[in-house]
């Protein structure tokens, strides 16, 4: 019982979105298809569909975030939900009110969905275990564990440029060890059945036994990027210099920073991606980030459609109605 996949209901439908791990390929494809139906909403004159009218979505961000928070807020608003943002720094948690006490109070105010970001791995699971049955939880990043909507928007972006996942070679470059984004991307890409998934970084940034997740490990950038269809760069946090993980940003950029020269060994139509925010001159050269193969900004706008899809799906609306109601606007 304990190991039941908490995010699925008895029929196997999404009730929460906590992690990509354990989702079926078809479930991921369904989310991407639904997101496709929302992509035009942003271009309409009235950028709203009434799917979540009367629902209340609470953004609970225990960690700072600009992009994820904003796109979740926009997504909820475009679905006509009421959105509440709890600023955790000034909230009662600092006064010793426990996480779960705080949730009970919010539940008492008749909320329908919690979008949670927290610094501890497993925080979203903990919350999902304890919320009332009518409430859904969406993980917006928990510690080093998972960031499922980021991975889904990355898959969405890849699918818009590459017709099929199966033949692809994808390289994820950078701080795999501390990255929840990388973990979710790895689960998504292996579930979608890509042929060659690589992680590229020095040993200090690669967790032991990462091969068990279905990736090939490279320590040399040029070997790792050879013939790649997609290159995903990860953000390097400045504090990694302190833990004796890296000597300096300069040396990191020298060996693992993405430049046009290093990118030359990849396929000519390679996609360059980054979950943002980017550190220019640390993990990626401006020339590449702003160059023709970069889809970094496209990822951001796709994030809204993907988050709309996830929110509407976990709150139980069939995606077909979604489209027709959206078109009726």
């Amino acid at each position: 019982m304990r190991r039941r996949n908490l995010q699925l209901d008895a029929q196997g439908h999404l009730r929460h979105l906590l992690t990509i791990e354990g989702l079926k390929r078809q479930q991921i494809v369904d989310i991407l298809d639904t997101a496709e139906s929302f992509i035009t909403v942003g271009d309409q004159q009235v950028r709203k569909v009434p799917l979540l009218r009367g629902k209340t979505v609470v953004n609970l961000f225990f960690e700072a975030s600009t992009r994820t928070l904003t796109t979740f807020e926009l997504a909820a608003k475009r679905l006509s939900a009421d959105v509440l943002k709890i600023n955790i720094n000034t909230s009662a948690t600092v006064k010793g009110e426990s996480l779960l006490d705080m949730l009970q109070n919010l539940e008492a105010m008749q909320c329908d969905m919690f979008v949670v970001r927290h610094g501890d791995s497993g925080a979203a699971h903990l919350i999902a275990q304890h919320v009332a049955p009518h409430i859904s939880v969406i993980n917006a990043g928990d510690g080093r564990h998972a960031h499922p909507t980021q991975a889904l928007l990355d898959m969405f972006t890849i699918r818009r440029h590459k017709s099929e996942f199966a033949p692809l070679t994808v390289a994820i470059v950078g701080d795999i060890m501390h990255s929840r984004v990388a973990r979710s991307q790895i689960h998504a890409l292996t579930t979608l059945g890509i042929s060659d998934l690589r992680v590229v970084a020095p040993k200090t940034l690669i967790p032991t036994q990462v091969e068990g997740l279905g990736v090939h490990v490279y320590h040399n950038m040029k070997e790792g990027l050879h013939d790649a269809d997609v290159v995903i760069m990860l953000r390097l946090q400045k504090e990694r210099m302190q833990g004796a993980l890296l000597p300096s940003e300069q040396e990191y950029f020298q060996d693992y920073g993405l430049t046009n020269e290093k990118l030359a060994v990849a396929k000519p139509n390679v996609l360059v991606m980054h979950p943002g925010p980017i550190n220019r001159g640390v993990e990626i050269d401006s020339e590449v980030a702003d160059g023709p193969r970069s889809v970094i900004l496209e990822q951001v706008s796709n994030g809204i459609a993907v988050r709309m899809a996830v929110m509407s799906m976990v709150l139980g609306r069939p995606p077909i109605n979604t489209e027709s109601e959206g078109a009726a606007q």
Binding site: E21, S121, G122, D142, R144, R183, Q209, V210, L213
Partner: peptide, 9 residues
Amino acid sequence: GAVSVRLGL
């Protein structure tokens, strides 16, 4: 090991 890498612990 295998579990800590999967769960990001």
